[in-house]
């Protein structure tokens, strides 16, 4: 007997029907079984029966908003991967998205193909039933320790000093290990905007992180350059309570 690999199940939660009406068929065509919920309240009723492999959550919704639902899920040890759709792209909102246990986030308006790329990456990384790296308060990679609540980093027991932007950048890379991340995506995720010279800005900060971590770009322990493309965190990252 041949078993057909099951299609991953997605729950799409957004109150804007213009978005769900167009996005749901697109996700279906991209190979995902998709169900739609209009707000957090409806989503929390569907969750226990539908058991999706991934939830796409809009932040601003009536009744129960995306952030509250995410908090509720994580509190009850529901580790279903979540991609947040942030509405205004406020930097505070982006910083909070990861802290509250979202696996990734995307600023509206976004390219639907980009969303599918993120879904693939998140599903590949996710370990069913286990908390994602992004919800770990501390990240460890060899002798590198990252305390995310205190926003402090240690290497070989020695605290290292990075600018706030570099800390956010390192956090994004460490919570998405082994994934090719383009400069544009880093700009969008950490800076929240893109501009013609923005990619240079990313390179400047990566150089700062490498200098402080004494990471050799030719033989990297942490951050690898993918020529013409972006960066990849190559170290093995673990979570620590």
């Amino acid at each position: 007997m041949v078993t057909i690999p099951e299609k991953p199940k997605i729950l799409l939660v957004d109150d804007e029907t213009a978005i769900t009406d167009n996005l749901a068929p697109f996700l279906e065509r991209s190979g995902y079984l998709t169900r739609v919920a209009a707000d957090g309240e409806e989503a929390s009723q569907i969750l226990p029966q539908y058991h999706p492999d991934l939830v796409i959550l809009d932040v601003m919704m009536p009744r129960l908003d995306g952030r509250e639902l995410l908090r509720k899920m994580r509190k009850s040890a529901n580790w279903t991967p979540v991609i947040l759709l942030t509405q205004v792209g406020e930097s505070s909102e982006r910083a909070m998205a990861l802290e509250e246990g979202a696996d990734d986030y995307l600023n509206k308006p976004f390219d639907p193909y980009e969303l599918v790329a993120r879904i693939r990456a998140v599903l590949r990384r996710a370990q069913p039933g286990e908390p994602p790296l992004s919800s770990a308060p501390r990240l460890v990679c060899g002798d590198l320790h990252f305390d995310r609540r205190a926003r402090r980093v240690w290497k070989a027991g020695q605290e290292i000093i990075l600018t706030p932007k570099a800390i956010n950048l390192l956090e994004y890379l460490m919570t998405h290990p082994d994934e090719l991340i383009t400069r544009d995506r880093l700009l969008d995720a950490v800076w929240g905007w893109d501009y013609p010279v923005g990619t240079r800005t990313v390179d400047t900060r990566i150089a700062e992180i490498r200098r402080v971590l004494a990471d050799d770009p030719v033989d990297p322990r942490f951050i690898e350059t993918i020529p013409g493309n972006g960066y990849r965190f190559v170290g093995r990252v673990g979570a620590q309570g």
Binding site: V88, G89, S91, P109, T163, P164, K165, G192, W193, Y195
Partner: peptide, 22 residues
């Protein structure tokens, strides 16, 4: 239109975000 919305957002964020002075 996306560009316009991004630029407007950038402008409002600029007025409030804290400067990272070095």
């Amino acid at each position: 239109l996306s560009r316009l919305s991004a630029d407007l957002r950038k402008l409002t964020e600029l007025e409030q975000q804290s400067l990272e002075r070095t």
